[in-house]
């Protein structure tokens, strides 16, 4: 009995480690289903017609998420027509940051006129599966037959303070590569951001 417990706990540990590590570029992404701000459940598998999806872990309160908010809106406006819509996901625990509650997500989306879905990861399992660590944190997914796999992980561009001052556009460049069947040149970038507020 003891050994069973031991084995289970080892598997438990391994499970938690692998969950923390998250997806790497090239890996296939599991389907997920989360509640949108309109009350409807949205799944990755709903995006059957898309060529890819720009998954952005973001939130209401983080100053860096706010700085990128207009750029995320622009990404969706530019790329959803080309087959790459944005799926925004708030993974923060509202107990820790009340500003990131589901009700406040609705308010924020309405105020800014989000053209994309804004989903609430209330169990934080999706953020853990992805290995998201901060907001904003982008995972560009490309359609691989039926499933989606990760094509790029990181920042939107290389200047949080001002979109005009950025001179590297990681997400746009990656989409351009995918769209022309070229390998994505920069597949991982790092950026300062707010920690995800875990439960």
């Amino acid at each position: 009995m003891k050994s069973v417990v031991l084995i289970l706990s080892i598997f438990g540990l391994l499970g938690s480690f692998s969950a923390q590590a998250g997806y790497e570029v090239g890996e296939v992404v599991n389907d997920f289903s989360l509640k949108n701000i309109d009350g409807n459940q949205v799944s990755l598998s709903d995006y059957g017609d898309a060529k890819g999806v720009i998954v952005v872990f973001t939130c209401n309160h983080c100053p860096y998420a706010k700085l990128y908010e207009d750029r995320i809106i622009e990404l969706h406006k530019t790329y959803s027509a080309q087959g790459y819509p944005v799926i925004a996901i708030n993974p923060n625990d509202p107990e820790k940051v009340p500003e990131d509650s589901y009700e406040n997500m609705k308010k924020r989306a309405k105020k800014k006129g989000y053209p994309f879905v804004y989903l609430f990861d209330d169990t934080q399992n999706v953020a853990k599966d992805f290995g998201a660590t901060r907001t904003p944190h982008v995972f560009l997914l490309e359609k691989a037959k039926v499933k989606y796999k990760v094509a790029y992980i990181g920042a939107i561009d290389n200047n949080p303070q001002s979109a005009e001052s950025a001179d590297q556009f990681y997400v746009s460049d990656a989409i351009a590569s995918l769209d022309s069947d070229q390998p994505v040149k920069v597949t991982n970038t790092k950026a300062v951001g707010c920690t995800i507020k875990w439960k």
Binding site: R134, N158, Q161, K190, V192
Partner: peptide
Amino acid sequence: DLDYNSWIDKVSEEWSGAIP
């Protein structure tokens, strides 16, 4: 230096960029 990707790994490869 706002070009974070150019230096975060030089501090530590373990750092995703989130603070603190």
